[in-house]
Write a protein that binds this DNA or RNA. Structure first.
Lengths: 108, 108
DNA sequence: CGTGTAAGGAATTCTGACACG
DNA sequence: CGTGTAAGGAATTCTGACACG
């Protein structure tokens, strides 16, 4: 319901276009995948496909690397952030459950 | 200012992905370009690149063709619509000019 | 008119490896 | 560790043309 569902997250962009958009080399882009920082999907033929969100993420990654942060550390950060987000989402969901139990049922 | 500027109009999708997304054949997609219904940009190497907007347009075109509308007619429609939009945009702009002339200057 | 297809070539992408520092 | 590069192959895309209806 709150879904944007849309364009930004659709994995449709091939690596060559990502290269142009980010200024990174294909080598770098593939390496960040190898280090589990980015997760393109694949075409039936095996070519990588990225989303606009992936591209933004790649640019953040590139900045951190320039600042001397190692891929391992970047990955740790990402995992921590994800955990926080998941916990927040769960709290929100449970609260909504409470609300529904109190008021939702009587809606007739 | 009212610009979405964003993802939806960026030409970044190669024809293979467009094929998957629209269900059209590459032949069809290229033919609609030949008939001036769609205008992909190109990579330095010459490959076509489409936007999400292009994809939506392609699906509308495909529907019309199935309904027996000819590409020539579709093109006429598109041109007429564009003219209408341009005229509306111009009226809006001129009205804004009036408003600015009346009130904008005294803003100090 | 709109689409399929075979043809030949060029651009794109892929993987695994060696190199450097 | 992060990146460059040459290697060989496979998938992708391109154009112009012939075919059908």
């Amino acid at each position: 319901m709150t879904q944007e569902s849309s364009y930004k997250d659709k994995k449709v962009i091939t690596i060559g276009v990502v290269r142009e958009l980010t200024g990174l080399t294909e080598r770098q882009i593939r390496y960040y995948e190898e280090r589990k920082l980015i997760f393109p999907s694949r075409t039936s033929g095996g070519s990588r496909k990225y989303s606009f969100t992936d591209i933004e993420l790649l640019m953040e990654i590139a900045e951190k690397i320039e600042d001397g942060v190692q891929t391992f550390e970047i990955r740790q950060e990402m995992i921590r952030e994800k955990k926080k987000e998941d916990a927040a989402a769960l709290r929100k969901k449970m609260l909504q459950g409470q609300i529904n139990a109190q008021f939702g049922i009587r809606k007739i």
